[in-house]
């Protein structure tokens, strides 16, 4: 009863719209029925298809406009919506008794969402840390070459079009979960020994507890060379990276690991010698 009263008022307006949409629906059913019987690619098929798109263009536009307040130019969205409409026309099967608009609406929306995801959202939605973390090393490589020094986080952020704080977080995250590849490729063809020279001269300079020397000698060749270059030749990590042919981040991780290993072994060695005395 109350429902009937509520319906009564707009009934007049609805009547007009219903007439228009009823005739459009009729026309649509007619065209679709014809389309199904036509050979794909034939001139008549193309014509009927175009008429259907024309007939339902209003649906595509109205969906496009519902999305238009999201920073995308309207004509872009309209075009994307029309693509969705075209797909719907091609896939619609009138024999299933479904209203065309019922079928087309989710398809058109899906098309617009995909468009947002591929374009606008890529700029506005914060990228995952992991994803950012994977983009940082190549950016660092590029910038190191361009700037002839290792880049600052602000410079990396500018290159990747993101916030410096995001870069800081991603760098920290990368530090936490990246593992060192067992064998990173070194500059092809040239044995490391040839490029680097002997570490013995540098070693001779440290008058260290006897325990350390054999530990350094026992390090893998590359780790030992990097250690020497950094601490005895005072080369920067980027210089070492360029010399050895691996990334600066990789140099950094190798150095950290080498120092940690040396400390552990030194501790173990002194524990053993303490036992023996």
């Amino acid at each position: 009863m109350t429902a009937g009263q509520g319906d009564a008022q707009p009934a007049g307006r609805r009547q007009v719209r219903t007439d228009a949409s009823a005739s459009r629906r009729e026309q649509s059913v007619e065209l679709f029925t014809e389309l199904v019987g036509l050979e794909q690619g034939s001139p008549r098929h193309a014509k009927v298809r175009a008429e259907l798109v024309q007939l339902h263009a209003g649906l595509a536009y109205s969906i496009a406009h519902r999305f238009s307040r999201r920073g995308q130019p309207d004509d872009d969205l309209e075009q994307v919506a029309m693509m969705g409409l075209l797909k719907s026309v091609d896939r619609f099967d009138p024999a299933r008794g479904l209203e065309f608009s019922t079928f087309a609406t989710p398809t058109i929306r899906g098309e617009i969402r995909r468009h947002f995801r591929d374009t606008a959202w890529a700029l506005h939605v914060p990228r995952g840390l992991r994803e950012l973390a994977t983009q940082i090393p190549p950016a660092v490589e590029e910038l190191t070459v361009e700037l002839r020094r290792s880049p600052r986080p602000s410079e990396i952020a500018a290159r990747l079009g993101t916030d410096p704080e995001r870069v800081v977080e991603a760098l920290e995250a990368a530090d936490a979960f990246t593992t060192i590849p067992i064998e990173a490729p070194s500059r092809e063809g040239r044995p490391l020994t040839e490029t680097l020279g002997s570490p013995d001269d540098a070693l001779a300079r440290i008058d260290e507890r006897e325990a350390l020397r054999p530990l350094i000698q026992a390090l893998p060749e590359r780790e030992r060379a990097i250690l020497m270059m950094r601490f005895f030749d005072e080369m920067s990590q980027s210089q070492i990276a360029a010399r050895v042919g691996i990334s600066q981040m990789h140099v950094s991780r190798l150095l950290s690991r080498t120092l940690r290993d040396l400390h552990d072994e030194l501790e173990a060695a002194s524990a053993v010698s303490a036992q023996h005395t």
Partner: peptide, 15 residues
């Protein structure tokens, strides 16, 4: 890093 030290320096600091 937040003071915008370049990465070499950050790693040196860490070590």
């Amino acid at each position: 890093t937040r003071l915008d030290f370049d990465l070499d320096h950050v790693e040196d600091l860490r070590l």
